[in-house]
Each structure stands twice: as structure tokens, then as C-alpha cells.
């Protein structure tokens, strides 16, 4: 079944992985900043972080991608396709990640904070030594799910002509017409990367829930 198609698709897969990792790094940083920002005692920061989260969650990632690629240049900011892709995907997933960060911090049980008070930790120590370490553990499974969603979302940047896997598949389809084989390969390749990630996330999920039961 069309092994000759593989080199081209795998070259695209390399770009897909690069895009995923670069966007994931951006998303992680942004998620932590915005997630903590939404819990800030300072109202302007809360509003700023909240606006970012709601705007990026409230609009479509593809619209954001097109906006960064086509509309941003008209503001005088010119991004190449890869940068626009990473920016759109990273900021979009980062907005969802920010909610994960916020939710995880808030779901550290009240009793943990009370124990911290009873042991006379300062507010900053309670955050750093008790709340955040537990929240980080809770964030792992949802972050893993976000990573999988991100991997799949990279297919969208084919629409702004980044030669990742879907783009290569689409172009091959146009040039060779071998539609069945190409799309079957595409599906299998995505599945081969995403499904092990899914299984990994589930394994982590089980361990996390066992670990935090104290």
C-alpha cells in the first residue's frame, strides 16, 4: 500500500512534531501566566488574563490562525506561516490550559490550606509548598489531553500553506490522485502518534488520582 508515499508524508510529520512541540511550549508558558493571573489579588491582572482566556476560547482556532496570518500583517506585524501557526495554536491551547491551571489550583482541597495555616506557613509558603505542587500533579492529565488536541490541531496550519503532514498529503492527492492510500496513511500516522499519547495520559490519570487521595 503505497510505501513510496511515506517519505513525503514523514517529512511532513517532522514539521507536524516541530509545530506541536513549539506550540506546546508557548501554550504551557502562557497557560501558567494566565492561569495564575486569573487568581491574582490584583483586579486589572485578573481582567486582563480573563479577557485573553475568554477571547481565545470563545473564537475558533482556525479563525485565530487566519487572523494572525492574514490580518496581522495589516497591523504592520509580519509573521511567516510557521510563526503565525505556532502563535495561533499556542495562544489558543494556552487559553484552555489557563483554565486547567486555575481549576487545578482551586481544586486543591481547602483542608490542605487549613493544614498549612495550622502549621503557621506564610501565605506565600502555602502557595509554593502546598498548593502549587499538588496543583501541578493535577494538571498533568489535562495538559496531556491538551497536547493531543494540539497535535490534531496542527493539521489546520496546512490551510496557511505550512508543509506539515496534512499539507503534504493534500498536495500528494492533488498531484498523484491516489486518494485512498494517501488519506489512509494520514489517518494511520496521526493515530500512531496520538493513540499512545492517549494511553499514556490515561495511565497518568490513574496514578494521579491514587496519589492525591490522602
Amino acid at each position: 500500500m503505497g510505501i513510496d508515499l511515506l517519505p513525503t508524508l514523514l517529512r511532513g510529520a517532522g514539521i507536524t512534531i516541530q509545530l506541536t512541540l513549539a506550540s506546546a511550549a508557548l501554550a504551557l508558558v502562557v497557560a501558567l501566566i494566565a492561569g495564575l493571573g486569573r487568581l491574582s489579588p490584583w483586579k486589572p491582572i485578573r481582567i486582563l488574563a480573563g479577557t485573553y482566556v475568554e477571547v481565545f476560547r470563545g473564537t475558533s482556532v482556525l479563525v485565530q490562525l487566519f487572523w494572525f496570518y492574514f490580518a496581522l500583517p495589516l497591523f504592520g506585524i509580519r509573521l511567516d506561516a510557521f510563526a503565525a501557526g505556532v502563535l495561533a495554536l499556542g495562544l489558543n491551547v494556552g487559553a484552555y490550559g489557563a483554565e486547567t491551571v486555575r481549576g487545578s489550583i482551586l481544586s486543591v482541597p481547602r483542608g490542605q490550606i487549613e493544614a498549612g495555616i495550622a502549621l503557621n506557613f506564610s501565605a506565600a509558603q502555602r502557595m509554593r509548598r502546598i498548593v502549587l505542587p499538588q496543583a501541578f500533579v493535577m494538571m498533568l492529565p489535562p495538559f496531556g489531553n491538551n497536547l493531543i488536541e494540539l497535535l490534531k490541531a496542527t493539521a489546520l496550519v496546512s490551510l496557511i500553506t505550512i508543509p506539515e503532514m496534512t499539507f503534504e498529503g493534500y498536495s500528494l492527492q492533488m498531484t498523484t490522485g491516489r486518494t485512498n492510500e494517501i488519506f489512509l496513511w494520514l489517518l494511520l500516522l496521526y493515530f500512531a502518534v496520538a493513540y499512545p499519547l492517549t494511553l499514556g495520559v490515561r495511565a497518568i490519570e490513574r496514578r494521579v488520582s491514587a496519589f492525591l487521595r490522602a
Binding site: 490534531k152 493539521a155 494520514l186 489517518l187 496520538a194 493513540y195
Partner: peptide, 12 residues
């Protein structure tokens, strides 16, 4: 399988 592959590719 459906959940592990991109909607865009499925549409194609």
C-alpha cells in the same frame, strides 16, 4: 480512532 485523528483529515 476517530478521536485520535484530526477532524480536517476526516473531512478530506
Amino acid at each position: 480512532f476517530i478521536r485520535s485523528t484530526p477532524l480536517l483529515v476526516q473531512l478530506y
